[in-house]
Amino acid sequence: MIPVTETIFLDESEIEESFIRSSGPGGQNVNKVSSAVQIRFDARRSRSLPDAVAVRLMRLAGSKLTQDGVIVITAQRHRDQARNRVDAVERLVELIREAVPPPVPRRATKPTKASKEKRLEGKAKRSGIKSMRGSVKFD
């Protein structure tokens, strides 16, 4: 079990790992060793996450989310597979932690009287500047 918060734990069996060749520099090693890690986590069908957290997680995932509700994270920052595996899982856990707190509801507010007056003064001033741009009339 992977701890996310005090109440949420991920089951390791819900995370699929695959190893791919890393892109970028690395000499001859880059063509032989599959050091990059790609993990897949099915947020839609996960038993570890509450429904509300799963919905927020899918919204947060953005381009990492497939049409099937699977989050795909590729880690290739490090040169060895073990460190990339840990990095990928940490990034998934961090994404889930961001989705845990519910969004703060927006409270409707009214502008103050002073701010309304300031806005209207600015508009009047700007209107005066623009009216001076017209063609010059000679009497």
Rank of each mutant, 00 (worst) to 15 (best):
I2V: 14
P3Y: 05
P3D: 15
E6W: 01
E6R: 04
T7C: 07
F9H: 05
L10Q: 10
L10A: 05
D11A: 13
E12C: 10
S13L: 09
E14M: 03
I15L: 04
I15N: 00
I15W: 01
E16T: 15
E16N: 14
E17C: 08
E17G: 10
E17D: 07
S18D: 07
F19A: 13
F19D: 11
R21T: 11
S22H: 01
G24C: 01
P25Q: 01
N29V: 12
N29F: 03
V30F: 01
V30H: 01
N31H: 12
S35H: 03
A36R: 03
V37H: 04
A43T: 03
R44A: 15
R45M: 11
R45A: 12
S46Q: 02
R47V: 09
S48G: 08
S48W: 10
L49M: 15
P50I: 13
P50V: 04
P50G: 04
V53M: 01
A54W: 05
A54M: 09
V55N: 07
L57K: 00
M58F: 11
R59N: 15
G62E: 13
G62H: 07
K64C: 13
K64G: 04
T66D: 10
T66P: 05
T66A: 11
T66E: 07
Q67H: 12
Q67W: 08
G69R: 03
V70L: 05
I71C: 03
I71T: 08
I71V: 14
V72F: 05
T74E: 15
Q76D: 13
Q76H: 08
Q76Y: 02
R77Q: 07
H78P: 02
H78Y: 11
R79M: 13
R79S: 13
R79F: 12
D80Q: 04
Q81F: 06
Q81N: 05
A82G: 13
A82Q: 14
R85M: 06
V86F: 10
D87R: 09
D87M: 11
A88S: 04
A88T: 06
A88C: 07
R91F: 07
V93G: 03
E94D: 14
E94G: 07
L95A: 10
E98Q: 03
E98C: 09
A99C: 12
P102K: 08
P105N: 04
P105C: 05
R107N: 05
A108G: 13
T109S: 07
T109L: 06
T109I: 00
P111M: 11
K113N: 13
K113A: 09
A114N: 14
E117L: 15
K118P: 09
R119L: 14
L120M: 10
K123P: 12
K123I: 15
A124R: 01
K125R: 12
R126V: 15
S127K: 11
S127I: 08
S127G: 12
S127V: 11
G128W: 09
I129S: 01
M132D: 13
M132L: 15
M132T: 13
M132I: 08
R133W: 09
G134I: 02
S135F: 07
V136W: 04
